[in-house]
């Protein structure tokens, strides 16, 4: 005997709308490591949907004399995360009487992110600086703390636009034009500016200004580079 077919409801399923703790405020972060320098940069636009909330809200923070962090994603999480890292780094300085090394900061950031594994900081971070040997280093992360050391990286809203070009222009993938001498710090700086100008043309979440930190053995230098405001 066959079971009677149950009538199906024609009523629309109730829609649920509720508070979302996350916002995507956009932004692009970029870092490039050289033999004895590192350049880390991010645009300063703060977006929400199709609105620009602010044109001058920095995403890059200097953590030690030779380490910087750049974070895009949710501004609220970014502010909190960067505050927390500064807190821990100052504590380290008090306790050990010396600055935290860049790889140590990188490891601490991973641990910090993973602590919030089930309510993540919605941030895409890059750490850049000089390591204990004075070599440029860059660390790239996902939102929950998976990280690796690289020579260059990009994250945030312009990530997909920029990454393939870095592969080509920095790692010389898919090209036979591999130059014999490495790019100097000044040349790298020009590259960074070109990259942001180009990304700003295609990505609505990238624009206004680029905050650039150039880290070498003499310390950290800051430069602001204007982008189109549209």
């Amino acid at each position: 005997m066959q079971a009677p077919q149950l009538p199906t409801s024609q009523v629309e399923q109730p829609k649920e709308s509720r508070f979302s703790p996350y916002q995507n405020n956009g932004g692009t972060c970029l870092a490039l490591a050289g033999a004895d320098f590192c350049i880390i940069a991010a645009d300063s636009r703060l977006s929400l949907g199709y609105s620009i909330l602010s044109r001058n809200t920095p995403k890059v923070a200097q953590l030690t004399t030779k380490t910087c962090i750049a974070s895009s994603g949710c501004n609220a999480d970014m502010v909190t995360l960067q505050k927390y890292l500064k807190f821990k780094i100052q504590m380290y300085l008090h306790q050990h009487g010396k600055e935290m090394s860049t790889p140590a900061v990188a490891q601490m950031l991973a641990t910090t992110l993973y602590h919030r594994r089930f309510f993540p900081y919605y941030t895409f971070n890059i750490v850049g600086g000089l390591d204990q040997n004075g070599e440029g280093c860059v660390f790239s992360y996902d939102a929950i703390g998976c990280f690796e050391r690289l020579k260059y990286t990009v994250s945030g809203s312009g990530h997909a636009l920029i990454e393939p070009f870095l592969d080509n222009l920095v790692a010389y993938k898919n090209t036979d034009n591999k130059p014999t001498i490495e790019r100097s710090c000044d040349e790298t700086l020009e590259l960074v500016k070109d990259i942001f100008s180009s990304a700003g043309e295609r990505d609505i979440y990238t624009g206004d200004f680029v905050d650039i930190y150039i880290i070498d053995k003499n310390g950290t230098r800051y430069e602001q580079f204007p982008l189109k405001k549209d």
């Binding site: 927390y84 807190f87 504590m91 008090h94």
Partner: peptide, 10 residues
């Protein structure tokens, strides 16, 4: 004192 200072700064 250090912790208090940092907390205030936070």
């Amino acid at each position: 004192m250090r912790t208090e200072c940092l907390q205030h700064k936070y």
